[in-house]
Design a protein around this nucleic acid. Structure first.
Lengths: 200, 200
DNA sequence: GTGAGACTAACGAACGTTAGTTAGGCTTGG
DNA sequence: CCAAGCCTAACTAACGTTCGTTAGTCTCAC
C-alpha cells in the first residue's frame, strides 16, 4: 500500500540488500535507519518512500535472505543418485547454507532469540517447512527404522550450533577445526554409519 | 573503584540479577537503563551509584550468569563411578545447564553473536576454558583413539543448537520432542555406542 | 550520650544525543 | 506535465548520563 511495486528490482531491493548484513551483525535494535540509508547512499527519510517503517523493512530482509537460503537446501534435495550420494549432498548443502552464508545464519539466530511463536510459525510455513519435510523424507527413506524428523532436527541443531560456536573454537582448543567441509564429511559419515547399524 | 565492595550482596547484586533476564530476552541495545531500574525498583540515576555505565553492568551480568553455569558443569565432572555413569552425568549436566537455564543460554547466544575475538578469549579464559578442558579429558579417557576435543565441540554444538531451535520444533513437526531429558539420554547413548565401536 | 562529620544510596531534573518518523519542496525521466 | 523519488528540515520520544540534593547510617571525640 504505502510502497511501490513497480520498482521492486531497484532501490527497494537495494535497501533490503544493504540492510541485511547490518541487521545480521548488530540486530534490529542495534541498527538505525540512518545507518541503513548511509549504506544505500541515500538519506534516512527516503527509506520511507519504499517501506512503511523500520519493522516492515526488517521483515522484507528476513524474507529476502531466508528464501534464498531455503532454495539452496531444496535444490540440493532434488539431487538423484545413490542414497549415500544424496545424503552427502544434503548435508553438504546444509553446512554450506549455514557456514557459507553468515548473514542468513546470524539473522536466523537472532530470529530464534527475538521471535515469538507467531513469527516462528510464519517462518516455518513460508520458507523452512518444505525443506525440512523433504529432509525428513530422505532420512526416513534411507533409514526406515529410525525417526527421520528427529534425526533431521539433530542434524540442523548440530550444524547451526557448530557454525555459531566456530569463532570461539580456536580459543577453546587450537586443535579444533573450523573447516566446515570437514564438518560436512564427518556428519555424513556418522549418519551413514548409524544407518548401516540399525539400532543405536 | 567507582563502586563499593562492602555491600555487594545487596543492591549491586540485585541490579545484576534483575538485569540478567532483561538482557537475555532483548539484548544489550534492546534494554534501557530505565527498564533495569524499574525492574529493581529504583530510578535510573541510582544505578550509577553501583556501576560505572551500562556496559559495565552488562559485563557484570555476564560474569554472574556464566560463572554460575560453568560451576554447574564442572561439578558434574567431579562425579566418580563407571565411565558410563560419568559420561551420562556430564551430558546431563550440559543439557541441564543449557535447557534449564534459558537466561544463561540466551546470553551466551547473544554473546556469540555480538562479541568479538577479545571477548571470546576473555570468556574462555575466565569461565568456559576449564570445564571444556575437563570435558575433553573425560572424552579422551573414555575413547583414547578418538579426538576428545572435537567430540566435546560437537557435543556442545548439538546441545546448544537443539535448545536454541527447541521453540521452533513444534511448528516444524509435531512429533519432535522438546523434552530435554530425552535429548540427554539419546546423546549419552550415541556417544557410548560410538566408543564401543572404535572407528566411525 | 550526643552531636559533628563522613559516607552510602536514593531521588528529581536536566543535559546533549540519537532514535524513528513526517512534511514539504526540488529534480527529473517518461 | 506529472508523479516518483530524492532532499532538507523538523518533530517527538527515548536514550545514556550527570548533576545537585537529601535522607539515612555509621563512627567517634567530647
Amino acid at each position: 500500500m504505502s510502497t511501490s511495486i513497480a520498482t521492486d528490482h531497484s532501490t527497494r531491493d537495494r535497501i533490503a540488500a544493504a540492510a541485511a548484513p547490518l541487521f545480521a551483525d548488530r540486530g534490529f535494535a542495534g541498527v538505525s535507519v540512518r545507518d541503513i540509508a548511509d549504506a544505500v547512499g541515500i538519506k534516512a527519510a527516503s527509506l520511507y518512500n519504499h517501506y512503511a517503517d523500520k519493522e516492515a523493512l526488517y521483515f522484507a530482509v528476513l524474507a529476502l535472505v531466508f528464501s534464498r537460503r531455503a532454495a539452496l537446501v531444496e535444490d540440493a534435495l532434488k539431487a538423484t543418485g545413490t542414497p549415500r550420494a544424496r545424503l552427502k549432498e544434503m548435508v553438504s548443502a546444509l553446512v554450506q547454507g549455514t557456514a557459507g552464508d553468515p548473514v542468513a545464519a546470524r539473522l536466523l539466530q537472532r530470529e530464534l532469540l527475538d521471535g515469538d511463536i507467531r513469527r516462528f510459525e510464519r517462518l516455518v510455513g513460508d520458507v523452512f517447512g518444505r525443506p525440512f519435510a523433504h529432509m525428513t523424507a530422505l532420512l526416513t527413506e534411507l533409514a526406515p527404522g529410525g525417526d527421520g524428523a528427529q534425526t533431521a532436527a539433530y542434524l540442523i541443531s548440530l550444524i547451526h550450533g557448530y557454525c555459531v560456536f566456530a569463532p570461539v573454537f580456536p580459543a577453546l582448543d587450537p586443535s579444533l577445526t573450523t573447516d566446515t567441509s570437514v564438518l560436512a564429511d564427518n556428519l555424513a559419515e556418522e549418519l551413514l554409519g548409524r544407518m548401516e547399524r540399525p539400532r543405536p
